[in-house]
């Protein structure tokens, strides 16, 4: 399936040695934002994927080696772009404040 579940797909059963995971949380004033959308843009700025955040403000992507940008949209907030570097076999943790 192609489901963009809130917060991202669970890591249960995923072979992390073969994935370049980017994950994190979206916060406003230190509180989690469960109504945000996080987009993953590639090195050219082109859209690659998007997930709605979980009630805990979480998101997760399975990318590839290289430079990426996280673009965060939320009600009553400016768009926030956050650069991140991913590598297969690692989890890149990102906290985004809006």
């Amino acid at each position: 399936m192609c489901g963009a579940v809130e917060g991202g797909v669970s890591l249960a059963g995923v072979n992390l040695a073969k994935e370049a995971v980017i994950q994190g949380r979206v916060l406003r004033g230190g509180e989690p934002v469960g109504t945000a959308y996080v987009r993953l843009l590639d090195r050219t700025g082109e859209f690659t994927a998007e997930v709605p955040t979980s009630p805990e403000g979480e998101f997760r992507f399975f990318a590839a080696d290289g430079a990426w940008t996280l673009r965060t949209l939320a009600p009553q907030a400016d768009v926030v772009d956050t650069p991140v570097t991913a590598a297969v076999g690692t989890i890149a943790e990102v906290t985004i404040s809006i």
């Binding site: 489901g3 963009a4 991202g8 073969k18 994935e19 994927a49 997930v51 992507f61 399975f62």
Partner: peptide, 10 residues
Amino acid sequence: LMAPAHLPQE
């Protein structure tokens, strides 16, 4: 990539 990046790639 093999799939949209919100999904595992294998």
